[in-house]
Design a protein around this nucleic acid. Sequence first.
DNA 1: ACGGTTTGGACC
DNA 2: TGGTCCAAA
Length: 682
Amino acid sequence: MPVARPETSDSRIIAHVDMDCFYVQVEQRKQPHLRGQPTAVVQYNSWKGGGLIAVGYEARKDGVKRSMRGDEAKKACPQIQLVQVPVSRGKADLTIYRNAGSEVVSILSRKGRCERASIDEVYLDLTDAAERMLKETPLESLESISEEVLKSHVLGLKADGKDDKETVMEWLQRPDADHRDKLLACGAIIVAELRLQVLRETEFTCSAGIAHNKMLAKLASGMNKPAQQTIVTSSSVKDLLEPLPIKKMKQLGGKLGSSLQTDLGVNTVGDLLQFSEEKLQEFYGVNTGTWLWNIARGISGDEVEGRVLPKSHGSGKTFPGPRALKTLSAVENWLKELCDELSERLQSDLEKNKRIAHTLTLHANAYKSTDTDSHKKFPSKSCPLRYGAGKMQEDAVNLFQAGLREYLGSYTNPLANQCGGWGITNLSVSACKIVAIPSGTSSITRYFHGPDQLHASSEPPVEKIVPEDDNLSPSRSERPCVSHQTEQQTDYDVEPTSIAHDISSSDRHENACKDEASGDFTREAFQLSSGTDSCSTSKQNGLQPGLPEKETKIKHSNNEIRLYNQKRKTTKVNGTSSILRFLQSNAYSSSKQENSSASQETNCSPSGVEQPNKKGENLTQSQNERTNTWSYNVNEIDQSVVDELPPEIQEELRTWVRPQKRQNIVKRDFMCYWGFHLSQLC
DNA sequence: ACGGTTTGGACC
DNA sequence: TGGTCCAAA
């Protein structure tokens, strides 16, 4: 799994910034009376007071730990304040934490390339900034070194680790320090400033590690918490790593780490040093072997990726044990909730960052109570993503059914098992392959937004373009228990009784299914929704071999363009051939687009968002990729297709086609746009 | 029958 | 490339 990367330079300055008990801080900012109080954030799960997902430091003193239940925490710390994660659509909603994380990122990204590693963690490459600082203001001449820097911990500086400010000051300004240590000192100064800015502008504290690579920085950020920073000098690496339990290393907390312990008797990183690179490669393959050999020596070439936006969005929920979903109807209801949330987040990403997701994936976990091979995995399925919650749900349901048939095996009739042998213990939908829309396409963005979001447009929002075909499917329109959303929501919020409520609510789903099934309804629903399936699972992987190839409708307003579904390779179309050929073969060939210059997910950053573009070389590379990979002739596009489109889109296209200057890029952007556009409408 | 929910990365 | 598995927070 881990891959060895050559170290480009051993003098990089890398910081890892880790928010202190982030969810708790977010809640304490929201409710200031919680400040200073022992506080923990619990996830909805009214069983035994819910599961703790973040614990404040005051509560940690009393021995409260993550993965305790609310009740246990209360026992350990009777005064503890338990705050619930917000719930919407019957599931945990992490939006406020994501947005808070974005606030932090927008500050941290001011001084260097910035990688958002998780909701509350960031890597920074401060090499350039540190070198600049060293050139412009030699450390010896630095008069005012902030108190915050002086509170740094410098590994190896003092045996007992109690670095006083004088010692740190001395170390920072040591005239005989080598270049790398001086750069580290500069990095520490920059990070201290950044942390202060974060505190000023967001009221959040964080801890940081400053080192020559990501691995060491990450290790260091956790060594002195909260609200402190730790510097890893090269000379300290050996002593730092040698006694370190192998499992503490990133990537070694799981099976690989266990294997090292049980198979090789390696318990500390120091133990790893005994093994030659070749030996490690024998055991774990070339990549992992080399990687292990390197990290044992503190060597890691992983670059800080300039990425402040997520590569995917997902929404999921588990249904443990007795709460497993047992009917198609229940699954459909939950898929609606999940798709609603996902759709909302995609819409927000589109508005704020001008990005479009191309692929929808459904994951599920299931068990078969009846069967022997119940450990079989429920297969993941994906299809082109269409914007709009209704369409997403429709597609998700189809993906689920495709997965279910595969899961149950072709030998049995899935319809027979309908309310019987299976249960879904986890459901999730996610959107990936997210690419930035080429800039200067405002009308297109508006088109996707709908008129109510930005300036008025003659076009309806995408949700309404194709008025929910849902009424075609009895599984939705005739289902008696369609929207218990508000009930569910309140159910989830009430504390002691919510389990009962919850179960009864899933009973409602079940009953609904039974009612329907009694009239052989589920079979119909099954077939019907397969029949109305548009452009998703049916054409994939030879699923539903019995179904004829269908026409795919591309509707827009009152216009309707009919395109013919084709098998991927054998393409025979006329008239609209050029676009179709593109859609079939190239819709997903778009090269990587870096988004370091895109705006943040939130615009709530108090200071406004400044996104330094530190990825000059990547941009050029990306452009090279573009010119190399794209050679489509715009003029081949059938005018009759263009004519069917809304006037403003047509206009936009004309402005793309006209200028001959940025030819290659324009062409590619054009097709990139069409790739998603048409596939989403169909 | 479980901390739950999200992400990212590698492999084939 | 889609699907699977792993790891982390």
